[in-house]
Design a protein around this nucleic acid. Structure first.
Length: 358
DNA sequence: TCTGGGGTCCTTTATCGG
DNA sequence: TCTGCCGATAAAGGACCC
């Protein structure tokens, strides 16, 4: 396997800079409201010099640099730019896994079967993306997804990092465990408690310690990845498994009527979403977040898939009431999601009663 | 007044029918 | 008839990703 990971640099911010060039010279944050509960989605490179980072609260970003310009995300605009990028990439590389709006994996082997030719190919992709979309990206080239992904992050922005076959483990070894994809805050904390701080140390863990620290499949999987071993193939299908909407309130909400209104409003959006895709859903899930940040979910599955706002909203409200009986109190967020998606257009009751199901 | 929104996958627990 | 066990599935939670 010869795979490249391509990552667009500060993507949301880069698009805003293209649309409004005067923003390129100032600290820019795409994200929420700095006076409210918003967080930073993307900071441009000027803002990063002030220590502003993704996922930081916007209030904190404002404290770090009061001159920061905040703009709300415009997802539909970013989707257009993203599509332009992936179209260009596709012209050069037939097999591509789009792993997000701003990143993806490229099967270089199909085009350049010899590893030594991969660097030039990746460099060509970067140059063409730049020329055709004016967007900067970074790439990592390696023999597996996990190594390519770590590599693409090494020389941002606009960089290319190649990890030669056989040097995967030694490349990964010195990095902090947190940069290994799959290691989040929890795993980092558990590993750090035993003094495991580098990917190399995780790779060297014996079975017994690993089972104790990270039980289940997860531990074994992460240790393999730490060794540069990652058999996952490129995944080119793009089928949705679930669709959801959620919203954090500016202030915590106790009034059940307002919560129901919110859920019904989101159900309307969900139903529109479903119908636009010609899909129906069998499972409805309501999500609650309490002020202490704990999350509760309640879900129900139907025998027949539905796609109408009224029934989704009805079920969502019932689930909310159930969850609030289990744990009453004000909420910071509510959300509703659907899963168990089917492509079949929903049969209306009338049609269903006339036309027999084959 | 710390901590979004939209996803995926995995694990554990509850439930139900032989 | 009662009980235990097994397997399948649904529900709920948790961790992680961009």
């Amino acid at each position: 396997m010869i795979v490249a990971h391509l990552d667009l640099d500060a993507f949301f911010a880069a698009v805003e800079e293209l649309e409004r060039p005067e923003l390129a010279a100032v600290p820019l944050v795409v994200g929420g409201d700095p006076k409210g509960r918003g967080v930073v989605a993307t900071a441009n490179y000027v803002a990063r010099t002030f220590g502003i980072r993704s996922a930081m609260s916007c209030a904190e970003a404002l404290r770090r640099c009061p001159e920061t310009v905040f703009v709300p995300p415009r997802m539909s605009v970013y989707r257009e730019y993203s599509q332009a990028v992936w179209t260009v990439v596709h012209e050069m590389i037939p097999t591509v896994e789009q792993a997000g709006i701003d990143e993806g994996y490229l099967d270089l082997e199909e085009v350049a079967p010899v590893f030594d030719d991969a660097r030039a190919l990746a460099e060509a992709v970067r140059a063409v993306v730049r020329a055709r979309t004016r967007l900067s990206c970074s790439l990592g080239v390696a023999t597996s997804k996990v190594v390519a992904k770590v590599a693409s992050d090494r020389r941002k922005p606009g960089g290319l990092t190649v990890v030669r076959p056989g040097s995967e483990a030694s490349f990964l070894a010195p990095f902090p465990i947190r940069i290994l994809p799959g290691v989040g805050p929890r795993a980092e904390e558990r590993l750090a408690a035993t003094g495991i701080e580098t990917i190399g140390a995780l790779a060297a863990l014996d079975d017994a310690s690993l089972r104790q620290l990270l039980p289940g499949k997860v531990g074994l999987l992460l240790r393999e990845r730490a060794r540069g071993i990652d058999p996952r193939p490129l995944e080119t299908s793009t089928e949705r498994i679930s669709i959801s909407h959620e919203e954090t309130f500016a202030r915590d909400v106790s009034d059940p009527e307002k919560l129901h209104d919110e859920l019904r409003r989101m159900s309307v959006r969900l139903a529109e979403h479903l119908r636009a895709r010609g899909q129906s859903a069998r499972t409805v899930t309501t999500k609650l977040r309490y002020p202490d940040f704990t999350i509760r979910t309640r879900s129900t599955s139907l025998r027949v898939a539905i796609d109408d706002a009224e029934r989704i909203g009805e079920l969502a409200c019932g689930l909310l009431d159930r969850a609030l009986r289990d744990r009453p109190g004000p909420l910071r967020l509510v959300g509703v999601g659907v899963s168990g998606l089917t492509d079949d257009a929903q049969l209306s009751l009338e049609t269903a009663s006339i036309v027999p199901v084959p």
